[in-house]
């Protein structure tokens, strides 16, 4: 039987080298994330929170340390294997949406299915768009949508391959509070349905939607705690 650990990180370091200057970004990160968790990684800009998310999401590799994904050590995985994991196990939601220009929302959402060779991609993409309330926007181009709608389309794209984890990097960063609340509500709902959500944010209000908060400063986890009564949060963003 699969263990409940989805992600396990041990002694992870990350440094960037540019023009012979070494910048150390993450130090000695040790972390376990279980299936079904809703984790917010918080920290000011430059703290390393996005880098951590990129490593967790296999967009980047650690400099040293071990990363177990579903109990498998991943350091030996080649690029294609990582691409496969990103395609099937992970969905990404970015602050700036990254929707393809001059391409319909439906086509955008179908994109991961193109790479998984999935059949019935049209039906799956429509279903994902329905789940985020965009079934009436299928044939719209990304530039014809509001920011909130764009982000919901991006969530639909993240969902379309039915991944285990969704990584959201400042998903409300470019949105007004109402749209932001809608997006967070969708993420909460997905979490309730069993998806593991890992959210990167520097806003406490956004982080309050999570069940667990990791605080990062200067490349180290300085705080890691569970949030119990999320629904009674005092901020105005929450929609009950």
């Amino acid at each position: 039987m699969a263990s409940k650990n989805l992600i396990k990180i041990q002694k992870l370091y990350k440094e960037f080298v540019a023009d012979e200057v070494i910048t150390k970004v993450l130090f000695d990160i040790n972390l376990v994330i279980d299936r079904g968790e809703f984790v917010a990684i918080m920290g000011p800009s430059g703290s390393g929170k996005s880098t951590l998310m990129h490593i967790l999401g296999f967009l980047d590799r650690p400099s040293t340390g071990q990363y177990f994904f579903k109990d498998q050590e991943t350091s030996e995985f080649n690029d294609d294997k990582l691409a496969d994991i990103r395609n099937k196990e992970i969905g990404f939601v970015f602050q700036t949406y990254y929707l393809l220009q001059k391409t319909t929302i439906l086509e955008n959402v179908k994109l991961p299915l193109v790479y998984s060779g999935s059949k019935e991609s049209e039906a799956k993409a429509k279903q994902a768009l329905k789940a985020v309330g965009l079934e009436h926007r299928l044939k719209y181009f990304s530039n014809q949508l509001s920011g909130g709608e764009k982000q919901r389309a991006a969530i639909a794209r993240a969902l379309v391959n039915n991944p285990e984890i969704i990584f959201a990097d400042e998903p409300t960063g470019n949105l007004d509070s109402k749209s932001g609340a809608q997006v967070m509500k969708i993420l909460e709902k997905l979490n309730q349905e069993g998806k593991t959500i890992i959210l990167v944010t520097h806003e406490q209000d956004t982080a309050n939607h999570a069940k667990r908060i990791l605080n990062i400063r200067d490349g180290k986890i300085i705080d890691d705690y569970k949030v119990n009564n999320r629904s009674t949060s005092e901020n105005g963003v929450l929609i009950k």
Partner: peptide
């Protein structure tokens, strides 16, 4: 570049 990055993020392999 960004489009290529996105495609890679959603699972495009080198050959794709």
């Amino acid at each position: 570049y960004q489009e290529i990055g996105l495609r890679k993020a959603v699972g495009a392999k080198k050959n794709n």
